[in-house]
Structures are given as structure tokens and as C-alpha cells.
Amino acid sequence: EDPKKEILLAMLMVDKEKKGYVMASDLRSKLTSLGEKLTHKEVDDLFREADIEPNGKVKYDEFIHKITL
């Protein structure tokens, strides 16, 4: 499956209130437990690539855009 789609799906599952962003810690939890599970190192690399703080907010569109360039 398309990794971009899988990450967006994980974000939507976490963002039940439809705020347009999720906490990095919640996204990490989903990405390491769903679908093609990522390792913590892979998530760290994704966050670093997208300039996301480990305890920060992750906005869908910015995150998807940064990791798919």
C-alpha cells in the first residue's frame, strides 16, 4: 500500500476530533503498531526529515508534503 496513504490513515485514526493535527507521540504509537509497522528508528528518521519535535504537533498536510518531496 502507498506509504503516504498509510500515514494519513494513521493520522486520521488518532485525530478523532478532526483538528488537522496530531501529537507526535500519538502518531509514533500508530505508525509502530499498524499496517507495515515502522521501527522507532524509522519514525525518528521521518520526524527528523519533516522537522517534527518528538513531543510536538504534527499537521497532516505539512507532514505529508515534507516526507514526500
Rank of each mutant, 00 (worst) to 15 (best):
V22A: 05
D51W: 00
K66R: 11
N55K: 04
L12A: 15
F63D: 11
L8K: 02
H40P: 13
M13H: 14
K4L: 13
R28Y: 06
L8F: 05
E53D: 14
K59V: 06
K57I: 15
K59D: 13
L9E: 15
K18P: 08
K5V: 07
D2L: 08
G56H: 05
G56I: 02
T68M: 09
V14M: 14
F63P: 01
K5T: 11
L34V: 11
E49V: 09
F63S: 03
P3K: 15
E62S: 01
E17R: 05
D61E: 14
M23H: 14
L9Q: 15
S29M: 10
Y60I: 15
L9F: 04
L8R: 06
E49N: 01
L8S: 07
P3T: 14
T32H: 02
K37Y: 14
E6P: 14
H65Q: 13
G20I: 00
L34Q: 11
E17C: 06
L27R: 01
M13C: 10
E6G: 05
R48V: 07
H65E: 15
F47Q: 04
E53I: 06
K4I: 13
K19S: 15
E36L: 13
L34M: 15
D15M: 11
P54L: 05
L8N: 07
E1T: 06
S33N: 09
G35P: 09
K19M: 05
S25V: 00
R48E: 12
H40F: 05
V14S: 15
L12K: 15
K4G: 11
K16D: 03
V58G: 01
L8G: 06
K19D: 15
T68L: 10
K66N: 10
K66P: 07
E53R: 09
E49F: 10
H40Q: 15
I67V: 12
K4Q: 09
H65G: 11
L9W: 05
K4R: 13
G35M: 05
A24C: 05
R28N: 02
N55R: 04
L8Y: 06
P3Q: 10
L34D: 12
G56F: 00
E53N: 11
F47R: 02
D51Q: 12
K57V: 13
Y21P: 04
K16W: 09
K59C: 01
V22Y: 02
D15S: 06
L46T: 04
I7H: 14
A10T: 06
L9K: 13
E42S: 04
K66W: 14
L27Y: 02
F63I: 05
T39F: 03
M13N: 15
E42D: 10
E42K: 06
E42R: 01
M23F: 07
V14Q: 15
V58K: 04
S29Q: 13
L27D: 05
E1R: 12
E53W: 00
I64L: 13
A10Y: 05
L9P: 09
K37V: 09
V14E: 15
Y21H: 08
A10E: 14
D15C: 13
A24Y: 07
K37W: 10
V58D: 01
V43K: 04
N55D: 14
G56Y: 02
E1L: 12
F47I: 15
G20H: 05
I7Y: 07
E49H: 03
R28D: 01
G35D: 12
D61S: 11
D26L: 01
L69Q: 15
D44S: 02
D15R: 04
R28C: 02
L69V: 11
K4F: 13
E62D: 09
L34F: 04
R28M: 03
L9R: 15
L8Q: 09
L38F: 15
D2E: 03
P3Y: 13
G35K: 10
H65Y: 01
Y21A: 08
T32K: 07
Y21S: 07
A24K: 03
D2K: 02
P3V: 05
H65L: 00
I64S: 05
R28G: 01
K59I: 05
L38T: 07
K5Y: 12
S25L: 00
E1Q: 15
L9T: 14
D44K: 01
K16F: 00
I67G: 08
Y60N: 05
K66G: 05
N55Q: 08
K66L: 06
E62G: 00
V22G: 02
R48W: 03
K4W: 12
A50C: 11
L27F: 05
V58W: 07
D26H: 07
A24P: 06
V14A: 15
K5W: 12
I52M: 04
T39N: 05
D61Q: 08
K16V: 10
G20Y: 00
S29V: 07
L34C: 11
D2Y: 07
V14F: 06
E49L: 12
D45H: 07
N55I: 02
K66S: 10
E42T: 01
D44G: 02
Y60A: 05
K18W: 01
D15G: 08
D51C: 07
L38A: 03
T39L: 01
I52W: 03
L46K: 07
H40Y: 12
M11Q: 10
I64R: 06
I67S: 11
K4P: 04
S25D: 11
L46R: 04
D2R: 07
L27H: 00
S25E: 08
G35F: 11
Y60Q: 01
K57L: 14
K16A: 15
N55V: 02
H40I: 10
L46F: 04
E6L: 06
F63V: 11
K19R: 11
K4D: 07
N55S: 10
H65K: 14
K59S: 10
L8I: 05
